[in-house]
């Protein structure tokens, strides 16, 4: 079976590892981290990435169309809602976001969300690709603001940027069974200390990432959107459903 995965770069390490060990032929298109902030843009880029698979085949840059296209995304601010599968079924994990995928299940994520409300999650992928609330990142942003809007406004804007950090109380670092740089948990711990948060370390679980690459998609944890269907939001535990176009 051929599986084409379109994934957020936040999954680079874990997905690459399991892709290399999959019995299937795996191709991956990586998209930038952070698109969950602009779900319209995420939807557009996912659509373009799907269309690009057909375009490559038409131009004979691709010898075989995949049997399935899997999205390495959760709902991600509903950015996956509205996508359509043409001739190739689309597969999507039924999770709110990547944190559930890194933790191994939506259920575990929701349990932790309730137990540790106010947790800012970090892991390999986030540290390597995202804006993280470290002193260095805030300093860099301050300098950008200063250049664009002057010193007085820069201080105000940085203050606004930091407001959300006051609402959080914990930094949750998700360890990876695939790779851990010794500096990363230390960085997460330092961020927690600087922000006045608690620090908690959690074991990651790659079972969903493994399932993505092995094609073991259960109805409970994945939506398989058949060809000629569109992904719709379900607003219940199933998160998403497929409706005929």
């Amino acid at each position: 079976m051929r599986i084409h995965i379109i994934a957020c770069r936040v999954f680079t390490r874990e997905l690459s590892y399991y892709a290399s060990r999959s019995p299937h032929v795996i191709d991956i298109t990586w998209l930038p981290q952070g698109l969950h902030d602009t779900p319209e843009k995420l939807r557009r880029m996912l659509k373009d990435a799907i269309d690009d698979i057909y375009i490559q085949k038409e131009k004979q840059m691709l010898k075989h169309l995949p049997d399935y296209i899997v999205l390495g995304y959760g709902l991600c601010s509903n950015g996956v809602v509205g996508l359509e599968s043409r001739d190739i079924p689309l597969v999507i994990p039924r999770t709110d976001d990547c944190i559930a995928v890194f933790l191994g299940s939506q259920k575990r994520y929701l349990d932790l969300f309730e137990k540790y409300n106010g947790t800012y999650w970090l892991n390999n992928g986030w540290i390597e690709t995202a804006f993280i609330p470290s002193k260095e990142m805030f300093e860099r942003r301050y300098n950008e603001y200063k250049e664009l809007y002057g010193e007085e406004n820069a201080e105000f804007l940085l203050e606004q940027d930091k407001l959300w950090t006051k609402n959080y109380n914990t930094c949750g670092y998700i360890d990876s069974s695939v790779y851990t740089c010794p500096d990363y948990p230390l960085l997460a711990e330092k961020i927690a200390k600087d922000r006045g948060w608690k620090y908690c370390r959690f074991d990651g679980d790659c079972r969903l990432i493994k399932a993505i690459t092995q094609g073991t998609w259960t109805d409970e944890e994945f939506l398989i959107c058949p060809k000629g269907h569109r992904i719709e939001a379900a607003y219940d535990e199933s998160k998403i459903s497929a409706v005929p176009i």
Binding site: F113, N117, G118, Q160, L163, W164, N167, Y168
Partner: peptide, 10 residues
């Protein structure tokens, strides 16, 4: 309830 994000709200 349950949501701690306020940039958009502000």
């Amino acid at each position: 309830k349950g949501d701690l994000h306020d940039i958009g709200k502000n």
